[in-house]
């Protein structure tokens, strides 16, 4: 295959995955610690963005470009999730 001519060193994708895992841990702490409900929504949005980054780095590290589909679908879904949470909060405000 033409695309498989490149051999990345292992430590690059490993470092990237470790840094992403650390940032996801910090975002999880922020999710539990957030004082109000919009703070938690922001943390959830950040976790979804980080999962997109995870799938991209995983696709590069395994060399299978089909995993990029998952990134595209998650990018389509997180916006709807955030808007749903926001509209729920708005409805709670009006009641």
């Amino acid at each position: 295959m033409n695309a498989m001519a490149i051999q990345l060193p292992d430590w690059v994708t490993l470092t990237s995955l470790v840094v992403l895992a650390l940032s996801m841990l910090l975002a999880l702490i922020g999710l539990f610690r957030g004082p109000s409900l919009p703070d938690r929504i922001v943390a959830l949005d950040l976790i979804a963005s980080l999962s997109i980054g995870f799938t991209i780095v995983f696709a590069v590290s395994t060399g299978n470009s089909r995993y990029l589909d998952i990134a595209a679908i998650v990018a389509l879904v997180i916006f709807i999730g955030t808007v749903a949470y926001a509209s729920y909060l708005k409805k709670k405000y009006y009641d």
Binding site: I6, L8, P9, V12, T13, T15, S16, L17, V19, L20, L22, S23, M24, L25, L26, A27, I29, G30, R33, V42, A43, L46, S49, L50, G53, V57, V60
Partner: peptide, 21 residues
């Protein structure tokens, strides 16, 4: 180029998480 882009992208994500905290 790929290594620099990968590590810089994950560092930006780490920056966002630190900002949330």
């Amino acid at each position: 180029i790929i290594s620099i882009l990968l590590i810089a992208g994950s560092l930006f994500s780490l920056l966002a998480a630190i900002g949330v905290l």
